[in-house]
Structures are given as C-alpha cells and as structure tokens.
Design a protein around this nucleic acid. Structure first.
Lengths: 290, 290
DNA sequence: ATCAAGATAACGATCTTTTATGATCAATAT
DNA sequence: ATATTGATCATAAAAGATCGTTATCTTGAT
C-alpha cells in the first residue's frame, strides 16, 4: 500500500482559499489566475477522489474532509517552510562582528547559541566596549552591529527593548541609606547609568558620594556584595548576589533605559541582517529575570 | 520572504537514493529510469542551489547539506503519508460485524476507539456468543470477523496471540484446595477452558467437582469472589477482584490458549480487512495486564 | 580492456497555466 | 416581481513548461 504524495503547491492554494474565503482572492494572493486556482482545487479533489468543498449560493464551504485536509495541509506546509528555510540558512556564510557593553553579555548567550544553530557557517565575533565607543565604531563600519544603551547625545538605532533601572545592593546587606548615599559606579553605557542616577538623586534633593568606580561590573562586585555601596543596574542584569531595592528604601525611582541596535551605515550583509532580526525577536519580550 | 515548496516526489527519490546507496538501485525501487533519478537529484540541487552529494570514485556520499535535507525529507514524507492515509481512511464506509466471546470484550475497547478514529464512516457491530457459535456464524457469513479462542475441532483462522491460562480466586480468599477441587465454570470458548482445566487436573491425578456453572463470567463473579470455587481465565481477563494462583497453590499448570481471528469465506470487505489488520496489530503484543 | 554506473542530449508525452467565454448568483433599480 | 448589473466561479481550447524515456557518452573499477 504505497502512499502517493501530495502536491504541496495544491495544498498551499487550499490554505489560501480557506484563508481568504474565495477562489479569486486566493488567486490574487498567490499570483495565479482565477481559473488556475479553480482547477487546482478540482485537481486536488480528483486526486483524492473526495469532494473538499461545496457551495451554497455564493458562499464556499469546506466539507468535513476539506477541513481535515486543511489541517493536514497546514502541518505539512509548516514543516516544509521550516525545512526550506533551514536549508537556505545553512547556505549563509560570512563573518560578522557585534559590539555590546560588557554587562549585556549575560543577556545574549542563548541568542548566540540559537544563531549558530541556524547559521552554522557564519563566523560571529563579539567585541565589548562602552556604549559610546561602540556607537562610534559602528558608524565607522568597524562593527556590523552594536547593541547599546541608547545615548542621549547619539540617537539612531532601533529601540529593541525598554528596561527599568533599579538600585541594588548585596543580597545579604542592609546598606546605610542616609545621605550621602554611597554609590558604586561603572561605565557600561558610557556613564548613562551614572547620569541617570545622579539626576534622580538630585531631583529628589538627596546627597551622594561616589564611593567606588570601576570599568566593569566585575570590578565592582566585591564592594557591592559587601554592602559598602549601592549600584544601578538594569533589572535583567540582576544576579543572585544582587538584591534590588524597591521604593520602601527611600531611594528615588529611576527611569527606563532603552536598548538600541545600531547597524553599520552600508547595506548590511545577510548574516548581519539575520542576527539583527534574531536579536530583535529574542529580546523583544521583556525578560522575567529574577 | 515566501518560502518555496518542496516537490515531495523529489524528496522521495532522495530518500530512496540514501536507502539504496545508488542512483540505479533507487531507480529500480521507484520504477523510474536511471536517468530520471539522476536528473531528479540534479533538479533538487538546482532548486536549492546546494550540492547535496559528491562522489569519490564510484561511491556516492551525501554532503552535510544532503544529510540535513534527508532528515527533513523523512519527516515531511512521514507526515505526508500519514495525511494521505488518513484522508483515504475517512473515505472507507460500510458496515461490519465482529463476533467475540463476551469476556474478550474487555480486551477490545481501545481497539474499537482507535478503529473509529481511523474509520469514522464505518458502522461497527459487535455480537457476543460462544466461540464455537461464532466460528459457525463466520463460516455462514453471518459475521465478517470473529475473534475466538481456537477450538480443537474447528481449526482455521489466524492465530493472533497466545495467552496463558491461570487459576484464579477472589482476591481476599484463601480457597480450600484439597480434592475435590471446587470449580466454577463458564463457557466462553465453548468449554475450551473447561476441557483444558479438566485435562490438566486429570493428568495431575487430582479430583474435582463442578461447583458452579454459568453462561458468563458475570454470573460467576460473586461465587468466585466469595471464595467458594476457583475459576480458569486467561491472564488478560484478570480483574482487580481476581487473584491468580501460582504453582505454589498445588494446582497443575495450564496450557496456553490461542486467540484466533476468523474471516468470512467471501473476500473481505475493505472495512473488514482494516479491522482485521488493526486487531492483529493491537493484540499482537501480549498485554501486560495485572 | 571491459563492465557497470552515472551523466547528458534530444525527443515526446503529459500536465499546467493562461486566455477567453459562458454560467450562476446576489444586489440594485425599474 | 422582474430585469439589469456586477462579480464569482466553471469550462474549453491553446500555448507553454515540465518531466520521463530512449539512446549515447563519460568515467571509474576490476
């Protein structure tokens, strides 16, 4: 009992007919002639020796068999499209450099893994620097893409996600929050965090002092963990060793920051385009990090 | 970015090439010409703009892309075949009568459910009678199929499954197993069970008496549950209220019985063929009933 | 050198799409 | 109600593309 094979083209028009509700509309959508679609439907019915549709008046209705075939068709076409785009993706080759501030690195490993699975032939390089630095490098085409916290003075780029900033301290610490507030600052977003924090404190009439500074979060970690100062991070950067402080701490609320994706000025290479798409998709939903 | 559709025919030959390891062998298997298969492979490569195979010497090897497409192909074809046979199955209509001994009914509900899912347009009637009776009815074409315990005196039919017979008593009872053994008998297999039991006892030099008889297990259940007698059932017929007795009970071992499927003498209708197949498939594996 | 397998070319048949036309049905006007 | 209009769908005929076959050529292994 050898099973004949479906013509996926015909199944695609079947789905189009179902989606649009009419033969002519389906024809338009598929860039076929009306008569072609009409005959394709007939062909399908002839091959299966089943009537898939019937019309009462002008309305087209699918029979039970039609509905069933429709379901099969959707599954088959989904698998087909997936297979096809996988085969295409594997053909995409090239090299690609992405810039990110060091502390966003923790956000992206799963994206990188997925990207490599989809496009195994693409060589991906990641460079870390401050946001301001990265923006300049992208403009100079030294990077294909850069994912940065949006700079006030360097607009452009697509906003991928907005994220709340939070005050945080070591998880077991109860820092003294009397003025002046001891701040631990680092410069991931080229001091965007710092700017924002100082503005918020000033607006609230609070006093502060910069207790510690470092180029990276890693350098600051011991100080913060020890409870010697509070730090400003995005919510998705919170680690198990960091405890966020809510408004009951008395510290002023902080604004949202924007993650922006910058692209090199020239037309993006195919790999760059794909990674950009992927980052947008994957990062669009606000992460529910602890 | 609209994804083109695969030609499942080409994928089928790709699989055939992979299975057979050569173009000519695949051609033979698919009833194509060698050149056709050769060109189909080329067509596939042209459509994807990928080379799927390479040969070193005479040996044909798939590239990484080829292997990948092969995997996709198998999935797609499996789905295709499933969809196709489902569409065909739904077209099968008719009526169909199956005979079974009453006590096998418990074995088949899942088969009936599955059958109805596969062939919703088939009307299935089930008739219960003793095995001997059923065999005659099938021969007289009053039934399409009969699933019976094989009769010594009426051979024929396909053996679907062998199953052990066991002695059983009420689950909480400790019956007196001194001679004469009190037997509770019913006649599901037209007394095959009785015959077998008495032969086994006689061969073991034991004495017995027929304490209770009934036409059905249901009639016997209270007596057995009460511990007034032992009964002989197949292992798959054991219910939670029945406790099997092993050899430590002192009762002689019982032979296997055979479940046989009889078909009406005329050429079976399509529904009958299908149900027969399904019963064979589903009942082939010995059930691990409690 | 010979044999078997794969590739290629040319031809033919089949299948598919299109253009053109006719039929059917709903809606609006008379 | 009846007729007219507009639109959708079905069908016929013809052009066109595709696919499979036969026949031939190339290539690699024994």
């Amino acid at each position: 009992m050898r099973a004949p094979t479906f013509d996926l083209t015909l199944l695609r028009t079947l789905v189009a007919i179902a989606d649009t509700g009419s033969v002519t509309a389906a024809a338009k959508r598929l860039a076929y002639t009306q008569s072609t679609v009409s005959m394709q439907l007939q062909r399908l019915e002839a091959q299966l020796a089943v009537s898939l549709h019937e019309r009462d008046g002008r309305r087209l209705r699918f029979t039970a068999e039609g509905e069933r075939l429709l379901a099969h068709s959707r599954r088959l076409l989904a698998l087909n499209d997936e297979a096809w785009s996988d085969m295409q993706a594997r053909q995409i080759t090239g090299d690609l450099t992405l810039g990110i501030p060091e502390d966003y690195a923790s956000l992206l490993p799963s994206v990188f893994a997925y990207f490599h699975q989809l496009y195994p032939a693409v060589g991906l390089t990641v460079k870390c620097a401050t946001s301001a630095h990265l923006v300049e490098q992208v403009k100079a085409s030294e990077l294909d893409l850069a994912l940065v916290t949006r700079q006030r003075n360097s607009p452009g780029g697509d906003v991928i996600r907005r994220e709340p900033l939070v005050w945080a301290v070591g998880v077991h610490q109860q820092p003294s929050l009397s003025d002046p507030i001891p701040l631990a600052l680092y410069s991931p977003g080229a001091d965007v965090f710092r700017e924002v924090a100082e503005q918020a404190l000033q607006a609230a009439g609070r006093d502060w002092r910069v207790a510690y500074t470092s180029q990276s979060m890693a350098g600051l970690a011991p100080i913060v963990t020890a409870g010697l100062a509070v730090v400003v991070v995005t919510r998705s950067m919170l680690t198990p060793t960091l405890r966020p402080l809510d408004e009951s701490s008395g510290l002023p609320a902080l604004p949202m920051i924007e993650l922006a994706l910058h692209r090199a000025p020239h037309r993006p290479s195919e790999p760059a385009r794909r990674l950009g798409e992927l980052i947008r998709e994957q990062l669009a939903a606000p992460s529910e990090a602890l």
